[in-house]
Each structure stands twice: as structure tokens, then as C-alpha cells.
Amino acid sequence: MGRIDREGATDGRTQFLKGCARTLVLQLLSEEPMYGYELSQALAKRSQGIFALGQGTLYPLLYSLESKRLIRVAREEEAPGSGRKRRYYQVTPAGRAELEAGLMTWRDIAHGMRLVLGA
């Protein structure tokens, strides 16, 4: 029974983190263009590991944001030494508007949670 509860809690946490990831990715890319690996590292570092998304989540999210024209490829650069290409993403004007909406939603949720939980 305890195992089921723990799995349920883990699933809930994963889903919640995924829901937040969209806003967080837009936020980071609004600060400066980044490529995928750099973005995943920045997300993990700045959230102190809380938002260490599985990369299986990150790239589908990036492609989804790109297909909705919320982000775009700003430039391509070769990785030093390897010659492999890195694609730097940046937020579009539509992405900035989406980010603002996401931030407002987040502030409302955080405010409501604090009010109820008294934290």
C-alpha cells in the first residue's frame, strides 16, 4: 500500500514539475539564448536540482515550444573541439507574452497556496 502511495506521490511531483518546466524554460531563454545541454544544466543548477528534468522531457518541450513559435533557433555554432553543431534557442515575442502569462499564473497559485497553507 505504501509503495502505491509513494509512486502516486512521485507521479504527481513529476507532473507538477513538467507543468512548471514550460515557464522555466521560457524564462531562461528570455535571459539569453542557450542550447539544449546548457539549458538543462542551467535549469538544474539554478533550481538547486529540483528541476533536474529528465532530458526526455526537455527536448520534446523545446520542439513543442518551437512549433508553437514561442521560441526559435537564434543561431548554430560548432562545439569547440568536436565540430558538432549546437542550436541556440531564444524566446520570440509570442514566447515573452506566454512567459508573462505563465508568471502571473504562478504568482496567483503561489499566493493562494500561501494563504491556505499559511506558509
Binding site: G36, Y37, S40, Y63, A79, S82, R84, R87
Partner: peptide, 14 residues
């Protein structure tokens, strides 16, 4: 081709 190159770059770097 693009997605493969991007994922490959990520895995190599990791």
C-alpha cells in the same frame, strides 16, 4: 537529421 544531431550533441557532451 536536425533532431538527431541535437540529441547526439547532448549525449556526447554529457
Amino acid at each position: 537529421a536536425r533532431v538527431r544531431a541535437e540529441l547526439s550533441e547532448h549525449l556526447h557532451e554529457m
